[in-house]
Amino acid sequence: MRKKVVKFSILPLIAGSVFFSFSTKEAANLDIFSTSKVENLEYTVISSEDYVPVEEESPRIIPVLGKSYTGFKEALAFKESRGNYKVINEFGYMGKYQFGKGTLNLIGIKDTRLFLNSPELQEAAFYANASRNKWILIRDIKRFEGKVINGIEITESGILAAAHLAGPGSVKKYLRSWGANAFSDAFGTTIGFYLKKFGGYDTSFIEPDKNARAVAFQN
């Protein structure tokens, strides 16, 4: 889901981001709902006309967090938005991890304004979406992990990052065609690029869950 970021607002302090980074699965506050099937394996772009771009600010520097789950999501966030919870790009993708409205609906988030104003909800959304993608791609992870496609060693974290970019359906097609069925987003970013850039992280913290939902904490 990475898209070119065009506007920035005042960014949260790194300390706040690290606080959210080290939350447990319970702290991600996932609420499980029953569904009969997995739908919409591709992501949906929303119109940027629904939102007012935020003010520009200098990019932040990503903290060095190693190959942990926290390192994985913070590296991905830096690529997506420079870690900005408030940003909306020209295609309408929102927040620190650049979610589209269609994906947010799949993980139980209907109020996009609440989403933009809640770092806690955005962190829960990232985990829920990764959990759902891992469930969809679990067989492909087992089949292709350690294999080499187009010169890239396939890892679980690379697969999950690519699913964040392109949707799990596109990643399935890429892997099962051994890289022949390619995908690139509106800015030319490819599945292969994400497979390589975000390979080798420890994403065992993410548990596969078909029905993962993200819900904001209520004070």
Rank of each mutant, 00 (worst) to 15 (best):
G100D: 05
F78T: 10
I46V: 11
R213W: 08
K86R: 14
N133T: 01
Y194G: 05
N181I: 15
S170W: 11
H164V: 01
Q218V: 13
I10H: 05
K172P: 09
F217K: 12
I206P: 03
G83D: 05
M1W: 06
F144I: 04
D50Y: 11
E207Q: 06
K196A: 13
E57W: 00
F126P: 04
I154G: 09
I10P: 00
V64L: 11
I206V: 15
P12S: 03
E39R: 02
F144Y: 15
D111F: 00
K25P: 01
A166I: 09
K196W: 02
S21C: 13
N133W: 02
K67Y: 13
F183M: 05
F198P: 08
F72G: 05
I14L: 15
S184L: 06
E120D: 14
F72A: 07
S23K: 14
L137I: 07
F78S: 11
T24V: 02
S47D: 14
W135C: 02
I191F: 00
V18A: 04
G199D: 00
A163W: 11
R132G: 10
Q98G: 09
I149W: 07
T155F: 05
R139Y: 14
V64M: 07
K142G: 05
M1L: 08
R143T: 10
S34Q: 10
G100S: 12
Y85M: 00
T70F: 11
S23Q: 15
S47M: 01
T155L: 07
A186W: 12
A28D: 06
S131R: 00
K67L: 14
S23W: 12
R132N: 03
K210F: 10
T70R: 13
G188D: 05
K196H: 13
S47C: 06
L116S: 07
K4M: 12
E90W: 05
N129P: 06
A166V: 10
A128Y: 03
K110V: 04
P59H: 02
D140Y: 14
E156W: 08
L195Y: 06
I10L: 06
I46E: 10
